[in-house]
Each structure stands twice: as structure tokens, then as C-alpha cells.
Amino acid sequence: MKSYPLQFQPEMKERVWGGRALERFGFKLPEGAIGEGWMIGDHPNGTTKVINGELAGLGLDEIREKYGKTLFGTKGFSEKNGRFPLLIKLLDCEDDLSVQVHPNDHYENLAAGELGKTEMWYILDAKPGAKIIYGMKDGVTRESLAEAIAENRIMDCLQEVPVEAGDSFYIPAGTVHALGAGVLVAEIQQNSDTTYRLYDYNRPGLDGKMRELHIEDSLNVIAYEGSGSTRMKTDLAEAGTWLTLASSPFFTVEKGLVGPQWELTTTPDSFVILVIADGNGTLQWADGQIATKPGDCFLLPADLGSYSLEGNMTVIRSYLP
């Protein structure tokens, strides 16, 4: 088989905080409040299937088992569970997400085979006045946070940050965070579905029951002395250069402007994931080409080699360090 860029059928997830904004990318959504589109996933809670080319119909897990390091690269597997190491999502936040935190790979209460969750957000769109919760105020300790939770004043401990399109946030495990209403986000994360909720605005879930909180686990995994989180504006002045948005042990994420043509290549050690943030163009490789539009996500095999991007668009590129 000749390698080619893979596209997948997203796994759409209904969430109490979701909406319908992912329709703007041309996705056909199921009924309900759709908060997450799992665009590229190899997880028991969501495994995406290829929709183009020779591998159409195969799940990412089946491709992993059949083609292994040829397509994913020598680094392209989680050392802990053997799965594809990243999960790529588009998030539509019609309402506020719960205040939450994620564990690292070494937390003793992780489910068997589950990874920790370091992630990053790139803000695709934000309504005027949109905010997120990003970390805690200086001086908050486990004891003072536990006291605030018990007294129902956790918001006094948290930092609110205004956001706009183009903002980038790196969120290592242990960072308290929450997306706010009115934002549309591309999320690159470890392949994990473990979230510990600290606070959920006393609202019922989709089943009408109050959603579970995970106070003790949250207090255990929070990085009280700082997690290494960083945020940045990502304005780019010229095409054809990469701006690093996040550099972690689990992924490198970069932003680039295409215009009019950009010659690139993959390397044998890692796949490349491209998320089209805005604009339109074409992805070309030795044996073909694909028209691109906002919201498109592509998995480029490690052995693809040379490829090019043409048009006028903003691209988020992710690969393994």
C-alpha cells in the first residue's frame, strides 16, 4: 500500500455544555447538544474510522495493529498501553464546562490502561466577552482549596482569563481549567478520557441527575506549585514559518500560515497531524491531492515523505517530539 493522508469520520459526543456550532465545518451532527467531535481517536470510548482511500472503513486501532510503525513512526505508540498516543478533538462550548483537572500518567487511581492527560487548546473562535478558567490564584494550597470547596466558594480560588480567536493554551496534567461559554476550540491531548470534576455549577447532566464530582482525586493531582502551563497570542506576520504553541514530552504543536505554497515532509519517527484552522486550499503528495477546508483533520503517515500545502489557510501541526 502506498501511504496517503488519512481522514476520519468524527465520533460526535453529546455534552450538557455543547451546542451545534460544529455544523459550520460541514459535519452532519446527531440530535442533541454536541460538545465534542473526536476527530482522530484510538480509545475505548471513541475510535475513529478512515473515510478515504484504500484504508476506508478501518478503525484507527485496526490500522495500528495492521501497519504499526510503518504508518505511525518509531515513536508513534504509547509506551504504557500500545495505542495511538494522541486524541484530536474539536470542542463547541455553548455553555461553561465543569471546573476540572487531569492526572498524569503515574497517578495510582488511573483506570487500567488509561493514560494521564496533558493537553493544549487553540481557540478557533470566541464570542465577545468569552472567558476560560486557567489555573488558580497565587497562594492557593490543598488546604485552602478544600476549605473553599466545602464552603461552596471555589470560584474565589480560580483565575479567569478572557479569550479570543488565535489564543493558545498549554495545559499540563495538574492544571485546574475550564472552557467557558462561547468558544470553539481545537484540542490536542494525550489519548485519555480521564477527567476529575471539582465544580459543575450545581447543574444536572443530560440524564437529569447531578453529575459526579471527584474532589479527592482532584485535590490529589493538582499541581499546587505550578504545572508549567503557558499561554500566548499567536499572530503570524509571514507565511511559511512555524510558531511553536506547545512543546511537551507528549506532543509538539505548531501554527503556520500557508500562502501560496509550502513544501514539507514527514520523518520516519512520527506521524504528522494537520488541523485546518481557517482558510481553504489543497494538500498534495506524490500520488494525489485533497481539497482542504476549516475543521478538516488529517493524519499524515510517517512514511508519506514529501507533501505540500497550497492556498491561503492557517494550519495547526502536531507530531511527537
Rank of each mutant, 00 (worst) to 15 (best):
G68R: 07
T118Y: 03
G139D: 03
S144Q: 01
N109C: 15
G57M: 10
L86P: 01
L60S: 00
W121I: 07
E54F: 14
E119I: 07
F84I: 00
I149P: 00
L87Y: 06
L91W: 06
E79Y: 08
E62S: 03
I123R: 06
E54V: 11
G76F: 02
L90E: 00
A111D: 14
L91G: 10
L124I: 09
G57W: 06
H102M: 09
G129F: 06
Y67K: 03
I149L: 14
Y122L: 08
Y134A: 09
P103T: 01
K131C: 13
G139I: 01
P162D: 05
I149D: 01
S78P: 11
V161C: 04
C157M: 15
R142Y: 02
E108L: 13
R83F: 06
A112V: 15
A130N: 03
I123C: 09
K89V: 06
D95N: 15
L110N: 10
P162Q: 04
G135Y: 04
E143V: 10
K89T: 04
Q159E: 14
L58M: 11
K69N: 11
D92A: 14
G68E: 09
K80V: 12
Y107D: 09
N109M: 15
Y107H: 13
E108Y: 13
I123L: 11
L158G: 10
L55T: 00
H106T: 15
K66G: 11
M120H: 04
D95I: 14
E65S: 12
A146T: 08
F77D: 01
P162T: 04
P128T: 06
D92E: 10
D61L: 05
D92G: 08
E160G: 11
A150G: 13
T118C: 01
G139N: 04
T74I: 06
G129K: 09
S144R: 00
K127Q: 13
C157S: 13
G68F: 07
E54K: 09
E108F: 14
Y67F: 10
E151W: 09
V99S: 12
G113F: 05
T141F: 03
Q100Y: 07
K89M: 06
N109L: 14
Y122I: 05
I149C: 08
G57K: 03
K89N: 03
V101F: 07
G68D: 05
G76I: 05
L86G: 03
F84K: 01
G76N: 06
G116R: 00
Y107G: 07
L55E: 01
N81K: 02
L97F: 06
K127D: 13
L90Q: 03
C157N: 10
V161D: 02
K127L: 14
L115K: 00
K75D: 12
S144M: 07
E160I: 13
A146E: 11
G76M: 05
